[in-house]
Design a protein around this nucleic acid. Structure first.
Length: 184
DNA sequence: AGGATGATATCC
DNA sequence: GATATCATCCTC
């Protein structure tokens, strides 16, 4: 499995987001390797992006997003669902990519469509906050047989509170025609 | 269409 | 320390 190096994440967030499509998210727990292909993501562009959690500045919760790239930002939404992000760009930038949907590849349920179900299927919870995504048990890899696909860009989901300027930006990316994309 | 359910930020 | 607000999902 060819693991993505930390440098992969140390680029423009919109580039990283689109480049993550088709890659494999791997999480090994108790010698069970769960693998899912990333089919849908959203980019969050830092303090200026009113839809990003980092628009509130550095807090205990957003601290990891202001750190170096290649680490996991996990948080709880609506009291019951976890969402998983990967930090991008250099130390101090406050940017990340939200993973919204996977296509099951290995040891996953069929319920990987949507950020909450994605975390549940992969076994991700708050204990993974700050975890290194370049580590041996939790990482993202190149697929062995890459496929060609078209990328669709749409506005992000559930961020109307950010105001029309940011809410309307096409920062949600997904693989065209993939049945595991969470919304049409 | 509405409720669940808890961490977090933002007030007092 | 109280409360309003969620980058959602499930059930009705």
């Amino acid at each position: 499995m060819k693991k993505l190096p930390r440098e992969f994440y140390n680029r423009k967030t919109t580039i990283v987001a689109q480049d993550l499509l088709g890659k494999l998210l791997v999480h090994r727990v108790d010698n069970i390797e769960r693998i899912g292909k990333i089919v849908e993501v959203e980019a969050y562009l830092g303090p200026l992006d009113l839809a990003a959690h980092t628009s509130k500045g550095i807090t205990p919760r957003t601290k990891i997003m202001f750190g170096p790239p290649g680490y996991v930002y996990v948080y709880l939404v609506y009291g019951m669902h976890h969402c998983m992000n990967v930090v991008t760009e250099p130390d101090g930038t406050g940017t990340a990519v939200l993973l919204r949907a996977l296509e099951p590849v290995s040891n996953l349920s069929n319920n990987t469509k949507g950020p909450g179900r994605l975390c549940k299927a992969m076994g991700v919870n708050l204990s993974h906050y700050g975890h290194d995504i370049c580590s041996d048990n939790f990482y993202i890899a190149h697929p062995q047989t890459p496929e060609n696909f078209n990328i669709v860009a749409r506005p992000r989901v559930g961020v109307d509170y950010a105001g029309s300027d940011w809410a309307s930006q096409p920062l949600r990316f997904y693989i065209e025609g993939n049945r595991y994309v969470s919304k049409k």
